[in-house]
């Protein structure tokens, strides 16, 4: 399993759903956060997190939600309510003032970002990258696109280990990594150059290997284990996208 991927392997209807349907759902939720009143958006956040809990991936989602959404909400509340000088600002302590307009901004923007983070996390946690790739293939998307998505995920760990090996090799030749500021800056090339040159050597070789395996021989490719759509999923995707477009239109015109 590629490192860093959030996927949590449990059984649920959401895990079985076609990743493309889930992507459409995410687009719909994002557009929803622009039309719902702030209180409703916060309700949506709660709903999404409850769903994650009910489907058995609460731990993974909540942990990451706490690490990403909470600092954002805290930061926006402090900056908008206390630091930015809105017209209705009342002095608080010292140089700080408090503003209801700022607070309202914070609640609104904070809720929207929290909802989008929560929905994205549910998508990522319930979708193994390889299933997403199969969905791309089944939908006839260009093979190059799926490659650009998959390849970095697979190579992060390899490159991370290689960066460590390079660091070790240069240190045993006498490179000091914890010296003065300027000497640390000067040591960047010794650490980065081998990473880049090995990547270029690999890119050359892998490009030939891919062509040798028939990569991009045709504009699309087939897949050994296709993602099966439930009977209602295709129409559901269309409905979700249509709703999303409608909501964005409403938001822009009203």
């Amino acid at each position: 399993m590629a490192s860093g991927v959030l996927y949590s392997p449990v059984e649920s209807w959401l895990h079985r759903a076609n990743p493309l349907t889930k992507l459409c759902g995410l687009v719909w939720i994002v557009s929803l956060t622009f039309v719902l009143p702030p209180a409703w958006v916060w309700g949506l956040v709660g709903l999404i997190l409850l769903m994650a809990l009910a489907l058995g991936m609460g731990r993974a989602v909540l942990q990451r939600f706490a690490a990403t959404a909470l600092p954002f909400v805290a930061s926006i509340s402090i900056v908008q309510a206390l630091f930015i000088v809105h017209p209705d600002a009342r002095p608080l302590i010292g140089p700080l003032s408090i503003s209801d307009i700022g607070l309202a901004h914070a609640v609104s923007i904070g809720g929207r970002v929290a909802a989008i983070i929560a929905a994205s996390l549910v998508l990522v946690t319930s979708t193994h990258p390889s299933v997403l790739l199969r969905a791309f293939d089944a939908a006839g998307w260009p093979p190059a696109l799926a490659f650009l998505f998959a390849s970095p995920l697979l190579m992060i760990e390899t490159f991370g280990n290689r960066a460590k090996a390079i660091r070790d090799a240069q240190a045993t030749r006498g490179l000091r990594l914890k010296g003065r500021f300027l000497s640390r800056v000067k040591s960047i090339p010794a650490l980065v150059a081998p990473l880049v040159t090995t990547a270029l050597i690999e890119a050359d070789e892998r490009a030939h290997v891919l062509a040798g395996r028939g990569f991009r021989a045709h504009a699309r490719r087939t897949t050994l284990e296709p993602v099966v759509d439930a009977p209602f999923e295709r129409p559901l995707r269309i409905v979700l996208l249509a709703l999303a477009i409608l909501q964005i239109a409403v938001r822009l015109w009203l």
């Binding site: 399993m1 990258p129 390889s130 799926a146 390849s151 697979l154 390899t158 028939g214 990569f215 021989a217």
Partner: peptide
């Protein structure tokens, strides 16, 4: 160097082997 001859597109050994035949649009 075997790692350079992996497609870098497959998350499992099975997918790696299937990668080429899939590209050729062979029957499942």
């Amino acid at each position: 160097v075997p790692s350079r001859h992996l497609s870098g597109r497959a998350f499992s050994v099975r997918d790696e082997i299937a990668f080429g035949p899939e590209n050729l649009l062979l029957p499942r």
